[in-house]
């Protein structure tokens, strides 16, 4: 327990703890608002915001007062925080001595965690790029006219759960993991386990081709066929099947939007899938070529 408190009380980890609490709080609040709206919609009243958007209030003083108060409260929090907790300063930078563990800034810990499962070009370049592009693409892919400007759950379940899955689980939870559960050597430690520099964990991993008992000596374009096949099916077969099942969804989006949406979504899901394959089968790579590995 002291170890958990020790990590928690490191000055730079306070915002992370705060973030986790706030994210959960606000997500909960959003859900409460959404469910309330959904109940109203079911009762035929329409969302609360609809009722309110007919009314307009003066910015001065109503909005301005609220903004000012928010600023004051934030200031109070900042001042107390800045007087009580000092920013960290470790030893002077020494390129010859690598701390163990060496962690990226906390907001990038999700990416650093991904490095366990993917090579740097994927985890550090391709995924972040797709995250940014994917986020920007959301408005152009979301053809659901409902839910524009008010909280609702039942009118846009796919959007909400897809986003929350990506945000809460694949981003925030990974940051939590990277902060509290990764120690020296990037070994896994429970939050209550003291960090031992000398911990040795058996970490032998196999590739897909090895799992399927293919002779390592076969040339790569033959040996990696199963891996390529897997990816191919992942990105073509699954969307096809889903399109057949959810015809309305497919029709709403059209082929291009549908496929881009599925591509992004499935790419995102590759991360948890790879993680599960690693934990269960000790799988390291699906595909191994002389130029890149996936």
């Amino acid at each position: 327990m002291e170890h958990f408190i020790k990590i928690l009380s490191k000055p730079d980890n306070i915002p992370i703890a705060g973030m986790v609490l706030l994210v959960f709080f606000y997500t909960g609040w959003a859900f409460v608002m959404a469910i309330r709206n959904d109940l109203r919609i079911k009762a035929g009243k329409g969302p609360l915001e609809l009722e309110e958007s007919g009314l307009k209030v003066d910015v001065m003083p109503h909005l301005l007062k609220r903004e000012f108060i928010a600023a004051l409260v934030v200031t109070i929090i900042l001042v107390i925080w800045s007087v009580a907790v000092n920013a960290p300063l470790e030893e002077i930078a020494n390129p010859a001595v690598t701390p163990n563990p060496s962690k990226a800034p906390w907001y990038f810990l999700g990416l650093q965690e991904m490095l366990v499962y993917f090579d740097p070009w994927l985890a550090g370049v391709v995924f972040p790029t797709l995250i940014i592009l994917g986020l920007m693409a959301i408005p152009y892919l979301d053809k659901n006219a409902k839910g524009n400007g008010y909280y609702t759950l039942q009118e846009r379940p796919f959007a909400i759960f897809g986003f929350l899955f990506g945000f809460l689980i694949l981003w925030v939870a990974m940051i939590f993991t990277g902060t509290f559960m990764r120690g020296p050597g990037w070994n896994f430690f429970s939050p209550f386990e003291p960090w031992d520099v000398h911990k040795v964990v058996p970490l032998t991993n196999v590739d897909l081709s090895e799992l399927l008992d293919i002779d390592p000596k076969t040339p790569w374009y033959v040996r990696e066929v199963p891996g390529f096949l897997f990816l191919l099916l992942w990105f073509t077969f699954i969307p096809y099947v889903v399109a057949l099942v959810k015809r309305a969804f497919f029709a709403q989006l059209g082929i291009v939007r549908y496929w881009v949406t599925m591509f992004l979504f499935l790419f995102m899901l590759l991360l948890p899938v790879k993680m599960i394959l690693r934990w269960t089968l000790n799988l390291k790579y699906l595909i191994v070529t002389p130029w890149f590995n996936i």
Partner: peptide, 28 residues
């Protein structure tokens, strides 16, 4: 301190802002 903590806080508030905008569908 205030510079560093505001910086960290801003990252969090920006994410929360993004979450809110998404939950109210205000990107449509």
């Amino acid at each position: 301190n205030i510079h560093r903590w505001s910086g960290h806080a801003m990252v969090v508030t920006v994410w929360l802002h993004m979450l809110r905008v998404f939950m109210t569908g205000s990107y449509k």
